[in-house]
Amino acid sequence: MLTRRRTLCAGAAALGAATVAAAITPGAGKQAPPPAAGAPAARRPLKPSEYRLRPLTGYGPPRTTPGRTPVRTEPLLRVSGRGRTMVLTFDDGPDPRYTPHILDTLARYEVRAMFFVCGEMAAAHPDLLARMADEGHVVGNHTWSHPLLTELRRSRIRSEMERTSDIVEKAHGHRPEWFRAPYGAWNRAAFQLGAELGMEPLAWTVDTLDWTTPGTRTIVDRVEDGAAPGVVVLSHDAGGDRGQSVRALRRYLPALLDDGYHLTVPRRQYA
């Protein structure tokens, strides 16, 4: 299973390297093609921060009435916001071996991030989703069992998404508003069903390829070299040995903040 997954991931990474990410604005038309977890730590309340804990505000004035989630044909690759804003995302968790360490680092620097969780992992570790909620992080839907959606029937895709949303709502407090296709493999059914479930599709701009365990320094370099306004960074907190990902975050996060970047989470225009 791991061999198959690594093969699929490698294919998706190769596809991602060949695409050109373009900044998008919610509600826009065509975008560029998408690129192809120790024991829980003691919690401490986060202090409000001018930029770090505030969602991105580049989506225009707030809507007075809820709008229907649009059905997109491509995922969002970047986010719009004021100044040097970036978003950190972590996939495949939560994993009690790594996710708590990532949460500890984010809490130390008062930074919020996005966690795209797999339902089977979330069901096994609801305490970690509860901690994410307590500390202000956004939890997204990464399906139940991390399958290749392009090989599934529509009914199976719905089940993968809906079961995960149910688990997230139970542990996190509300249903996810964002989803990400495993391996970055999207299809029409995934976009349609995601929208029906009230979720926007979010891909990434910078792929750390941390699942290949390239070394902590390499992961740090990939994030720092790719840093730019609107960038969405893809890393992992589960799915294998994520020790390098944990160590890399401890190094590049303070560096990005020192460089003036605002690490935060996006705000939905459609609810």
Rank of each mutant, 00 (worst) to 15 (best):
M1N: 04
L2T: 13
R4Y: 10
R5K: 11
R6Q: 12
A10F: 07
G11R: 04
G11V: 08
I24A: 15
T25Q: 11
G29S: 13
A32I: 02
P33H: 03
P35C: 07
A36D: 00
P45E: 15
K47P: 08
K47V: 14
P48R: 14
S49I: 05
L53S: 14
R54D: 11
G60A: 12
P66L: 06
V71P: 08
T73G: 10
L77K: 04
S80R: 14
G83F: 10
R84C: 03
V87I: 06
L88T: 05
T89N: 06
P94M: 07
Y98I: 07
T99K: 10
P100L: 09
D104Y: 01
R108P: 02
Y109V: 01
A113E: 04
A113G: 05
M114R: 02
A123F: 01
D127W: 11
R131K: 09
R131H: 05
H137T: 05
V138R: 01
V139M: 06
N141P: 03
H142W: 02
T143S: 14
H146V: 00
P147A: 00
P147L: 00
L148N: 06
I157P: 00
I157V: 14
S159Q: 15
R163D: 10
E169G: 13
K170N: 11
K170Q: 15
H172L: 12
P176L: 03
E177K: 10
E177M: 06
W178S: 01
L193I: 15
G198H: 08
M199Q: 15
W204P: 05
W204D: 03
T208Y: 05
T213N: 12
P214S: 10
G215K: 09
V220R: 09
D221G: 10
D221N: 14
D221F: 01
R222I: 11
D225K: 14
P229V: 10
R242Q: 11
R250I: 06
R251Q: 15
Y252C: 09
P254Q: 10
G260S: 09
T264E: 06
V265P: 02
V265I: 13
